[in-house]
């Protein structure tokens, strides 16, 4: 058991260095956001488990299904909640303790809550003022312009649509020109046109040498956000790197499957004969095999068993967790 209050333990795994994958990030420059073996537990539930990475400027997409721990990870990065184990550094500091670094982070949180009684302009101007910006009014107008919302709309943000609120939140997050932008599911609730427009904005910001962390649970969005991806599944870092390379790797990766049957030898022979799998081995009443095309194998195995009058006990993938991440990446579900 690690004492949380003592100096953080040395990182357990080597951080995944994503810097070299981002064009805008010079290899000699310092990383902007670093996580060292971050773990967060809520009671018995492990929300984030031993996550390490190092990120430079540009867009990094955090991909994962709902409940994978993306928001928790963002909350830890921004210092909103302390990690149970490990530590994070944003621009070399801890946002939970260091007052000034908080002014260099812009967070658009996932929750919909805003100060509902303010107008969009007041809300964004308030974000500027509380971040110590000098010319708050000018900057607030500029930020709202940037997300294409009228600064003169007297309507309260409480009466705004979801898409407009998302954009006001983004304006408030970037009004003080922070180096780090943490955007939690910024594209949900937007229509396709707004979505494209937002992604343009993100790329624009990334071009200004800012570090953007954008979370999403939709594969298609991530594909358009840029090449840099962290995949989070069940609180763990499941994959990291260039989006296209990851996808290729996953497509080629063989899957190991175990089959229980009363006629293992006959079935195994037939599988090899029809080229459904490689590396087939038989032990007692179990067949273990590797396949690169799970879908084809899945469709073929049952008819094959019927044909051989073999009884199938069970057909189960052995690498279930990675399997689900894989399916997630490829099929977007």
């Amino acid at each position: 058991m690690t004492d949380v209050s003592s100096p953080p333990p040395p990182p357990t795994g080597a951080p995944v260095d994503l810097g070299h994958l981002t064009q805008a990030y010079s290899a000699s420059g310092p990383p902007m956001v670093e996580a060292f073996g971050v773990t967060k537990a809520f009671g018995d539930v492990i929300a984030v488990s031993d996550v390490s990475f190092r990120i430079g400027s540009g867009i990094t997409a955090i991909l994962g299904p709902n409940g994978a721990g993306k928001s928790t990870l963002f909350r830890i990065l921004c210092g909103l909640t302390p990690p149970s184990k490990g530590r994070v550094e944003v621009l070399g500091r801890d946002a939970r303790r260091d007052r000034d670094v908080r002014g260099r982070i812009g967070l658009a949180p996932q929750q919909d809550a805003m100060f509902d009684r303010l107008s969009a302009f007041e809300f964004v101007e308030y974000a500027a003022l509380t971040n110590g910006v000098d010319s708050a009014e000018t900057r607030a107008r500029a930020a709202l312009d940037y997300v294409e919302i009228s600064a003169d709309d007297p309507k309260r943000v409480g009466a705004f649509s979801k898409g407009m609120r998302q954009r006001v939140k983004l304006a408030a997050a970037l009004v003080h020109d922070p180096e780090i932008l943490v955007l939690d599911e910024p594209l949900t609730g937007l229509d396709p046109v707004q979505r494209s427009r937002m992604i343009e904005l993100f790329n624009d910001l990334a071009g200004q040498d800012k570090c953007l962390l954008v979370s999403s649970h939709v594969l298609d969005e991530v594909a358009r956000l840029g090449s840099n991806v962290l995949v989070i599944a069940q609180g763990r870092l499941a994959a990291a790197g260039d989006y296209h390379a990851l996808r290729d790797m996953m497509d080629d990766r063989p899957h190991r499957i175990r089959i229980e049957t009363d006629q293992p030898r006959r079935l195994a022979a037939a599988i090899i004969e029809r080229d459904l799998a490689k590396g087939v081995s038989v032990e007692n009443e179990e067949i273990t095999l590797d396949t690169t095309d799970v879908d084809r194998f899945g469709r073929a195995i049952a008819p094959l068993a019927v044909e051989l009058t073999a009884h199938l006990g069970s057909v189960a993938p052995l690498d279930d967790d990675l399997e689900s991440v894989f399916r997630y990446l490829v099929e977007g579900r």
Partner: peptide, 14 residues
């Protein structure tokens, strides 16, 4: 309770 405290918390203020 409604989640707006973050807008006062994550700021360069004591």
């Amino acid at each position: 309770e409604d989640g707006t405290l973050v807008y006062l918390w994550l700021r360069p203020m004591d």
